[in-house]
Structure formats: C-alpha cells, structure tokens
Computed example of a mutant assay.
Amino acid sequence: MVRIRVVEETLADYYRNEQEMRTPVHFSIGQEATAVGVCAATTPQDWVYTSHRSHAPYLAKGGDLQALVAELYGRQDGCAHGRGGSMHLIAPEVGFAGSAAILGEMISVAVGTGWAFSRGGEKRVAVTYFGDGATEEGVFAESLNLAAVHRIPVVFVCENNLYSSCSPLSARQPAGTSIHGRAEAAGVRSAQVDGNDVFAVHAAAREAVAHARDGGGPCLLELATYRWREHVGPKWDADYGYRSQEEIDSWLVRCPILRATAALREREPDIATAVADWRRQFEEETREAVARAKALPFPPVEGLLDGTYLPLAQ
C-alpha cells in the first residue's frame, strides 16, 4: 500500500508540474487497501481486470513499475507499447489481464474468462474491479445473471467511493438499496466490507476467491472506500463544489495506511519507522523509473498501425 501511495503521489507531482504525460490519469490515492487486499488473495494464474482506475491493482498484482511509467510517458517500452496510456495497462505474465476506459466494459470480459476457466476444468478465478457508477450499466446486471446461472468462478469487486465522476451515489441510486443487495437478489453471494481496512478486505477476498475456485460460483465484494484526488487528474478538488473539504477530511483520517500501521504497532513497535523508510525508498524508485522512461524512444511512426484492424487489400 505504501508503494502504491508513493508511486501515485510522485507521478501526480510530475503530471501536474511538467505536463509531459499526455494521457488522462485516474489515481487511487486513498483506495490502496482495495487493490492490495484483493490481489494478495489471488495467484499469478488468476486473471484480474480493471476499469480506468488501474494503477493500484496493476502494481498490487505484480505489474512492472518501469513498464507502467513508460506507458504513461507514451514510450515504446511501456506495457502497452506506449499506445494505451494510463487506462489501458496490461501485464499477463503476472495475471493482470488488462484495463479499459469504457464504464463497465471489463465486467463481462472477466465473466467470459471465468467461464472459459470453468469449461476447461481449470481451478482459476477471474476478478473484475469497477466503481459504483458501473453498477448502473446494463452489463452489470447481465453479468451477474450469467455468472449466477452457470456458477462461474468470478469475483466482482466494487470499489464504492460514493461518486461516479462528480455525481454522488445518493443522487443516482434509490434510497434503501445497496449494490451488494442487488447482487444477492441476482443469486450472487455478496459481502459489504470496510474497503479502507486492508485486513478485512483480504479476509473477505480470500473467502470469495476460495468459494469461486472450489466451484461455489461467483461472489461480489462491495468495498466502501474514498478517492482523495479528483476523479481524473492529479489535483485536489474540494473547490469544484460537488463535495466539501469537511467530507474529504473525514475520509483522510480513515487512511488505509495509517489504519494498518496502527493495527500493527503492538506487534511491530518499529512499524512507523519502517513506513517512513519505505516512503523514501519508493520515492527514489519512482523518480528513477521516470528518468529512465524519459530516455526511452517513442513508438516508431512506421509501426503506427500495428495491432489495428485494416480492410483486406482489394
């Protein structure tokens, strides 16, 4: 969690001050426990898909930091060869199967992957991350239904940070309903978890992954969390008018790193010193990755159409 926090904070500073990363960025600063707690419950053979807020799960699953930074700078050595940017990361070698920008897009892809695992007799699980806004897309309901009917080994991970861009959950979904409740109504085993408690997230994820892997069918985890920065971009956004500084402050004190540090203090008296050392180590690691990325070449012009669909020659 400390590594993800430092990487994103450092990249946010570069993004804002230099304007050299020509890609939209969606940071997970404040939401690190959802990425770490769930991904730590998977194996490299389990596939993870995410939406546009992809840096944290990518790193938590074991994705290469240098490839991530190079991708943000549009370099050929990036994980998507400089063509995808922040919202299209991929690291299949560690089971990070991909991310995409279209709301809810990867939900159905993960369900299809899990179904392929099941039909092939493989003890593997597909995991899909999405925000609360994606649960209002038709693909969410359709995917829950298909996964439940066929007992597909997929874990749906909803990072409920209360906002879809700038629209609060209370203005979008009926009072008295819940995301995990809708999943239960579709026949999908569900749990609502404190998404800023990495130990609670990990325990719930281990149970969900084991349930899916052993043939029990799909599970949904609704993880209550909160992004600190703006929906897209590196800045703080209390002055935008859709949420107050008081609300943001109330979540800052629930920081997942501070809470994990406090929980470990009795067993690990030097944990605060370790966290400070990690912060310095990871900041240097990130700055080195940025320096290396800037020295890398851009994709060659002659390869501009590589990977695209072209009409057959007449």
Rank of each mutant, 00 (worst) to 15 (best):
G176W: 09
D132A: 11
R83T: 00
R16I: 10
W251L: 04
P256A: 03
D249E: 10
R83Y: 04
L103P: 00
R213Y: 06
E266Q: 15
Q192N: 11
E18F: 05
F156W: 07
R254C: 06
I29L: 07
R254Q: 13
H52C: 07
P168C: 08
A134Q: 01
G195E: 06
I179H: 05
D239E: 14
S244Q: 01
C79G: 04
I4G: 02
E246Y: 04
R53Q: 09
V155S: 08
V253F: 05
P153D: 10
P218T: 02
G217T: 03
E288N: 12
S51R: 02
I102M: 10
E8C: 04
A263M: 11
F156A: 01
A100I: 10
A126E: 12
R229W: 05
A276N: 08
G195Q: 06
H202F: 13
I29E: 05
N17I: 11
H55S: 04
V232F: 12
V157M: 02
E93W: 11
Y14F: 14
E284C: 13
F140H: 02
L89R: 02
F140V: 09
Y73C: 06
A33H: 04
V275G: 04
S28K: 08
R189P: 03
G307Y: 07
D197W: 04
R267A: 15
L103K: 06
V198Y: 07
Q314G: 12
A35M: 03
S190Y: 01
S164D: 10
A210R: 11
E247L: 00
E105Y: 12
P299D: 01
P300T: 12
Y15V: 07
A60Q: 02
K294R: 15
P92M: 08
A33G: 11
G217N: 00
Y226G: 00
F298A: 13
G78D: 07
Q31F: 12
E288Q: 14
E142N: 10
A141I: 10
S244I: 07
H211V: 08
E284D: 12
G131W: 00
P311A: 06
G78W: 07
G133S: 11
Q173R: 15
M87V: 06
L89Q: 08
R206H: 13
V157N: 00
G62C: 00
Y49T: 09
A293Q: 01
N196H: 01
A110L: 04
A238N: 09
A41I: 07
F140N: 03
A276W: 11
I90R: 11
H81E: 15
N161Q: 00
A141W: 10
M1E: 03
S250P: 00
G215S: 05
M21V: 06
G37E: 06
K235P: 04
Q281D: 09
